[in-house]
Design a protein around this nucleic acid. Structure first.
Lengths: 137, 137
DNA sequence: TTATCTGCAAAAGGTTTGCAACTGA
DNA sequence: TCAGTTGCAAACCTTTTGCAGATAA
């Protein structure tokens, strides 16, 4: 998400573009990995953004489906998400996230077909960086 | 899980069969839905089982892959899980869980194939009971 | 008998809320 | 100007831990 896109995103919803939101969003997007609120706060600490604001931005993004919380090994981690339907590849070692736009449209025979509203499909493993270098990302 | 199976399960791991564990497990299995620790505690309250014990049983089951925590609408909910590979159908209204053993073996083209260790596939919607009756489950 | 398990109370974390000051539009 | 936003501190809730008493094996 570029500054312009963010401005447009916020303006469409009658929300204000603030330095804090910009800082949080840029840190979040450029991290390209799942972050805990605490980790995200650490990334914007030098911009003097409070932890409360980090929580509020995450809530805002989640509500607008631009972020999604996951439970990874007991911790709540947020991933930045595109608006299109997609899945994820998540690195268990460094929590890097890659979006998978090629949906295999999973169909299980013993599923109550008419009742499904949506599905979540996530792949877990190790990213190439973590497989190669011993110390990851 | 029947009492005998539980006894065998615990004995194999040098763990003790207690009335509390039996009560929690039976309530958990027979609920057939995702429960918060708090909800599970309420189900065994008349058996005088403490909340701490509920947490400890859930931790034990999770460690042995007999339970799995999910993040559903901001809440941590546990589902009882078979040992075989399976997926889930989760009712968004009453949190009923159905295990899906027919795995579609999802393959996405743009996925780093060699790196995937496992995948999670979950279907969300409304169970028949909730679709029919207005007041669900 | 004894290592394990339980409940209670306290501690520890993580997340949310109230509020006064600040600020983008 | 003024509704929306922020940071701080306090409140809240969930989960974990320490410990003394109870108990399965």
């Amino acid at each position: 998400v570029q500054p312009e896109a963010l401005k447009e995103f916020l303006h469409r919803r009658h929300l204000r573009l603030t330095a804090e939101r910009l800082a949080v969003l840029q840190a979040f997007v450029s991290a390209k990995k799942m972050l805990t609120p605490h980790e995200l706060h650490a990334l914007v600490a030098d911009a003097n953004v409070g932890l409360t604001t980090v929580y509020r931005v995450l809530e805002l993004l989640t509500k607008h489906r631009c972020a999604q919380p996951f439970l990874v090994e007991g911790e709540v981690r947020y991933a930045f998400c595109s608006e299109e339907h997609h899945h994820h590849f998540i690195c268990l070692s460094c929590h890097a996230v890659a979006e998978i736009f090629d949906c295999p449209e999973p169909v299980a025979a013993d599923l109550p077909q008419g009742q499904v509203q949506y599905h979540a499909l996530d792949f877990y493993g190790r990213c190439s960086a973590c497989l190669e270098g011993g110390s990851p990302c």
